[in-house]
Design a protein around this nucleic acid. Structure first.
Lengths: 154, 154
DNA sequence: ATAAAAGTTAAAGTGAACTTGAGGTCAAGC
DNA sequence: GCTTGACCTCAAGTTCACTTTAACTTTTAT
């Protein structure tokens, strides 16, 4: 178990491509030391940071949000388990929200799609007012807020 | 209840912006008659088609997939409730998959993030091999397949 | 008859999260 | 010492699902 990893080792162990890791570094989500020749040398702790990023993305956070979360980690020392779990504590409600939306959609498959109510006027699931109220400027944003990221609405 | 709708009426009743409706038409997801002057005139049945599109997006399908679904509708007659529900029948399993992923993520918040296992090597939730096997060419696609659209894997 | 509102097209722009390419440098093994 | 594979930077390209803009034409209401 080396305590310092090269780019390739990071890629292998995290499953995240080099280009993505460089991109994350450019956003300040991760950091790396440099060899005398200017190549990246990652402390092992970065592996966990990358894991957190991947995990958070699956939960539905944008890299921007992830950056803000990571900023709340203690500086100057390697974060401990409890530091990480403090961050992810707020995710549970987001996950629950998205799950319940999916449950509603599932229920709506029969109730709403197969019956005549999918005229958009009467259906609670795809009610334009409902949508307009909750979702702001159109389906693009609505999708970003509700389906794609799924958990970003507040 | 007019049987033919103008653009504005479509927008009002569907909650989907005119630019999006034009875009959908350009993709062949919806169609429209034209007035003598070249303006779009939508049959009422298009409202339901748009509703289906919106619904399907919430479930997590891409417009491309939605197009393929819509292609399975009967041509030559206005689709009935059962036609629609036949299409959406396959979604239930996709929704269930995504829900159970979210459940796993939720469980992982404590099990995986806060403990030491989030070194990516031992953790089943963010195991690179697991990911690599399921997700193909990297996190970008992985995110498309699993988080963003959530339900597209087969 | 005319003004205002609504609609048209085609092309370019947007934002997120990367990826790709060009043109070079670094490090390890023989 | 040299080759080979890994690595570097910076800029531009990609995908998706739209939106915006510009320059015009239709429809509707007065």
């Amino acid at each position: 178990m080396e305590t310092i990893l090269t780019m390739q080792q990071m890629v292998k162990r995290s499953g995240v491509e080099a280009s993505a890791l460089r991109y994350y570094e450019s956003l300040g989500l991760i950091t790396a030391e440099r060899s005398t020749g200017g190549q990246r040398r990652f402390p092992r702790s970065m592996l966990r940071r990358v894991a957190f990023i991947v995990f958070a993305q699956r939960v539905g956070l944008s890299l921007d949000e992830i950056g803000r979360e990571l900023a709340r980690l203690p500086t100057g020392r390697v974060p401990k388990g409890e530091d990480w779990s403090r961050l992810s504590a707020t995710w549970v409600s987001r996950i629950d929200e998205r799950i319940s939306e999916l449950e509603r959609l599932k229920a709506g498959l029969d109730d709403c799609i197969s019956c005549g109510c999918l005229s958009l006027d009467q259906c609670a699931l795809s009610n334009p007012d409902d949508r307009a109220g909750r979702l702001g400027p159109g389906p693009r944003y609505w999708l970003r807020n509700r389906t794609m990221s799924g958990l970003r609405s507040k």
